[in-house]
Design a binder for these strands. Structure first.
Lengths: 207, 207
DNA sequence: TGTGTAAGTAAGTGACTGCTTGCATTTTCG
DNA sequence: CGAAAATGCAAGCAGTCACTTACTTACACA
């Protein structure tokens, strides 16, 4: 059963480089150090193999956001960082999968698992922020979530192609997007300015 | 010379559906209502045809932003709307092109023409906003530009796959992202609150 | 020692790929 | 009209694709 794993890993690598049409069973077999027939004996068809390989790469758990926000900047920044890291590690596969959306919608189904849940988690957190009075500005949680996730997604997908378009340094990007979003929501920087009106009101409400 | 145009248009359509590997010369010929040999007589090779087709689809001029901002919300919103519309019309082709980045970097070169210039224009505009004192908050123009463009890009690419993740209605999305960004920058909504401190200072500085 | 299972090897299937050739037909234009 | 250019048509080329078949080898366990 070791060859099965080797094959799946190889399939992921070759798919990330060449997409569905490009990852031929011969190339996968070579990359796995395995005979081509073994692939068909183990998985039946190329499609079944790729389906299994995609299931594996896309089933990941994200850093959770707390149900009750306490330090929004810290909590959101670390969430953003784990999200951008997740996307960067898989940027090749994600680009390929998105490119083959129309042709192979089932594959997209599994690929959209992570962003769907990330969006729901983030929306939930932002709504809690609002409810607790920690945000001075009115805002639509879904729009705010889409904005942060969109910025992170575009950075992870596009920086390799156009590095001059994205903020420097790369490792701080998630933090910078997060801070900008918090400003838009009117969320104070917890650590520093604690004498502010909104923050006082927030503390009253959350207490 | 009419067939040349038909072929290029057909190539764009087939490429948008199936990517480089999937858009065979036979399929393109069928879509163009033309004999396959005509393609080779006109363009020499499939690669040359696709190169020409990509050149055509990606050479577009964007709605310009004024050099001197006067009504940021109006100006930025209409820019965002034209940008998101541009991306939506080409979302299939863009997804395919991005998926084939590693394999065909020259194609990405031409595809990145529009976003590169959009980013430069937007940065320039945001810097002018700042210089004129129209923004109450400190911010990095490149981060802000990447955030707005990223949100718009992700919306244009992903809404078809996960509509529930993005704000409703679709036609207002660009406006909503733009407003959220302006809040982050501390840019007042010109039409309404004009009695505010920052706005007064902004007017003094810009005068 | 014998048996079952997973793997390798070699060959081949029909369908499709980009691209070419030779020749007949249509269109264009002086 | 008549020559030249552009197109269509039919066939074929060598290569690749996913997948199959028939047979051999290697190892596990009883």
């Amino acid at each position: 059963m070791d060859s099965r794993n080797e094959i799946i890993n190889a399939a992921c690598q070759v798919f990330a480089k060449l997409g569905f049409r490009g990852c031929t069973t011969r190339r996968i077999a070579d990359a796995a150090g395995v005979n081509e027939v073994t692939i068909f004996r183990q998985f039946g068809s190329k499609e079944a193999l790729i389906r299994e390989a995609m299931k594996r790469t896309h089933s990941v758990e994200l850093t959770p956001l707390p149900d009750v926000p306490s330090d929004p900047e810290r909590e959101l920044t670390s969430w953003s960082e784990s999200f951008i890291q997740h996307l960067r590690l898989r940027s090749s596969i994600i680009r390929k999968t998105m490119g083959e959306m129309e042709e192979r919608p089932e594959m997209c189904e599994s690929a959209s698992y992570v962003p769907r849940h990330a969006s729901a988690d983030l929306c939930h957190y932002l709504t809690a922020l609002k409810r607790q009075g920690m945000a001075a500005e009115k805002f639509d949680p879904k729009t705010a979530a889409a904005m942060l996730m969109g910025a992170i997604f575009a950075d992870a997908m596009g920086r390799g192609m156009m590095p001059e378009v994205y903020p420097q340094p790369e490792e701080k990007a998630a933090q910078m997007y997060t801070r900008l979003l918090l400003k838009a929501l009117g969320v104070e920087n917890g650590a520093r300015r604690t004498t502010n009106k909104q923050t006082k009101r927030a503390k009253q409400l959350s207490a």
